[in-house]
Design a protein around this nucleic acid. Sequence first.
DNA 1: CGTCGGATTGAGCACCGTCAAGGAGAGTGG
DNA 2: CCACTCTCCTTGACGGTGCTCAATCCGACG
Lengths: 233, 233
Amino acid sequence: MSDCDACVVRNRAICSALMPDELAALSKLGRKQMVSRGQTLVWEGDESLVVANVIQGVLKLSVSTQDGREQIVGVVFPSDFIGRPFGKESPYGVTALTDAEVCIFTRTAFDGFAKEHPDLQHKLLQRTLDELDRARQWMMLLGRKTASERIATLLIEISDRLGASGCSPIAPFLEKFELPMDRQQMGDLLGLTIETVSRQLTKLKEAEIIELPDRRSVIIKDRRRLENIATAA
Amino acid sequence: MSDCDACVVRNRAICSALMPDELAALSKLGRKQMVSRGQTLVWEGDESLVVANVIQGVLKLSVSTQDGREQIVGVVFPSDFIGRPFGKESPYGVTALTDAEVCIFTRTAFDGFAKEHPDLQHKLLQRTLDELDRARQWMMLLGRKTASERIATLLIEISDRLGASGCSPIAPFLEKFELPMDRQQMGDLLGLTIETVSRQLTKLKEAEIIELPDRRSVIIKDRRRLENIATAA
DNA sequence: CGTCGGATTGAGCACCGTCAAGGAGAGTGG
DNA sequence: CCACTCTCCTTGACGGTGCTCAATCCGACG
């Protein structure tokens, strides 16, 4: 793997902290890997053996109860970092929501490299802090928002993150996009059932706030009203 | 503030990454401060001006909607770190649940110091990763657990963290402890109402799994059964 | 055209929220 | 010492949001 220079996330992933020679050293430790939709990269509770950068695609982090209830606790987009560096087992599983491409490292090799490169660790710290903020915002959603507020928040969030992760040219958010997940996964992310997700989407459609051309596509027709619903005024 | 050596959290807070001379330098940047129950150290949405280590007491991190719903998104115990280093505004407020003592720094001074001390940043990264794991476990609770599972999980968690934070001699967890919060705050943390919290506690008491000698005290009589309820088998 | 997976829609119900009344304990003042 | 108050908690009755179970629909694919 020597084409980091050509990597589409070169300037947005944590690698952007590195000088060319450092990058070359890191690239020797990792390799690109394709992950197809539904494939699991890390199992919940397993020892944390690998970490990775997302190059393309979307993956979920999820936790399950013994009786099969699932909660998605994070969604990662291109340029995001995956995995639990510095020891421990992974408290969540990592599974591809869409076909994806990742730049993967063994955890121990990455840990060693990171210890030698404070700038990389700094980037990783900033990302982890951002991720923590996002997780906490989501806790507000799960603990206190109604079903319709949750759905609206999700649509805004996906629109924003697909925009930001450069899956689009330049827009800060997208008016029209493909959902990187099915209804069940939306439910697992929002703490709702598939039926409630479906009903709330139908309501938004009937209120002419969104359109649903097919089961994966969303068009936001009235972003202002959607934001009002999402922020739970 | 020159008595870091005597600090009760010296060996558990992030300061443990520092050599004596470094510690002396850091101590010049900060000062100890008392915070009384109910007092807010940082307001939600304010620019992030300070960070701190918790020396004594318990504080909450919380987010509110415009219409007054509140969700507690984190609880910090002695030796834990507070605040949002490296820029940005604080997306949550920080308020003392009990009288507390913190070791406080201006964010900019701390950021500058941290950049110069990779070991400190490393500790901070590990703590942030742990905090993120804990937040994600809590997302599972908020999204998928029932009221009784939530209450049981909370009691186990508080018992464990009070034990670990050295508020007790050596025990890994406590059989008897004081809740650092009232019923309303338990509800805000669990995504429940005060009434539901009360009813579920009564149920656990009637099942002889716990005792409630007074409104703040809990005795765990049958930890095994409590854990079974908590893990949502 | 039939099948299959995912999505929608409907009917009924349960859990938990809402509203309201009452209780327990600490502190205050007569 | 005992009302009085105040805060916090508990308990009860009722209703609504979202879950469960089930039928139907829709599009893709053979």
